[in-house]
Design a protein around this nucleic acid. Structure first.
Length: 121
DNA sequence: AATGTGACATACC
DNA sequence: TGGTATGCCACAT
């Protein structure tokens, strides 16, 4: 296991990188919340940072599935920041995630908690 | 160091 | 569903 383990404790480039890593580890057909990521990184109150990290994700060369990151309500709050805003919902639906009114259906089911699914060694 | 800012979270109405 | 208010943390200037 631990194949999906990441090094957060180490001095990574930036806090953003840690966020990007976690986001990239999100399996297809799943979604997580900003708070879950921030909590996983240790900064519970830093949920806003996660969103901000996504904002910087476009500067990353590696693709970051930001469409799999939604707010705690399962709402596609950040869809407006996508190249075409509708792409976020399209990508989610393409992965088998139902989206209704810019909100993920059965978000509870597709929710992917890094602290639960991921394992740090 | 201080201030402004943000793709959030929670509480309250 | 929506708005308002507060807390939270890290980055940019």
């Amino acid at each position: 296991m631990a194949d999906n383990s990441i090094k957060i404790s180490e001095k990574n480039k930036d806090y953003f990188d840690s966020v990007f890593q976690v986001v990239r580890l999100i399996p297809s057909g799943r979604a997580t919340s900003y708070g879950a990521i921030s909590n996983y990184l240790g900064t519970k109150g830093g949920a806003r940072m996660v969103g901000w990290a996504m904002n910087a994700s476009h500067t990353q060369q590696e693709p970051v599935p930001a469409h799999r990151v939604v707010n705690r309500n399962g709402m596609l709050t950040g869809k407006a920041h996508f190249s075409p805003p509708e792409k976020m919902q399209q990508d989610l639906e393409k992965e088998g995630i139902e989206v209704k009114d810019d909100k993920i259906v059965n978000f509870k089911t597709v929710f992917w908690d890094p602290s639960e699914e991921l394992t740090l060694d």
